[in-house]
């Protein structure tokens, strides 16, 4: 998934007023466990996922895992 992930963004965490930073984040679905670089708030750790990523690469990986 890494190739599709933005390294910077205009979005900031509303609560912490912090710029988002890329960091290794755990994602899992069915029997799949991955670590990917995603943008997140350095303070509260909320992870940012864009429409393109969710409905693009993530969906593709989900479907791939479902057919395993």
């Amino acid at each position: 998934m890494n190739d599709q992930i933005d390294k910077t963004t205009e979005w900031v965490c509303d609560k912490c007023r912090q710029a988002l930073v890329p960091q290794k984040v755990k994602v899992r679905y069915l029997d799949g466990n991955f670590e990917v670089d995603l943008l997140k708030c350095p303070t509260c750790h909320m992870v940012f996922i864009s429409d393109e990523l969710a409905m693009g690469k993530m969906l593709e990986v989900e479907k791939g895992l479902e057919d395993k």
Partner: peptide, 29 residues
């Protein structure tokens, strides 16, 4: 499912501009 909503807020009026989802679980923290 994780649902995402992008919106504009004007007082109590919320205008939805996008909605999407993913099934993958993102472990925050």
């Amino acid at each position: 499912v994780t649902y995402w909503v992008r919106y504009e807020e004007a007082g109590r009026d919320i205008t939805v501009k996008d909605a999407y989802m993913h099934r993958m679980e993102v472990v925050e923290g």
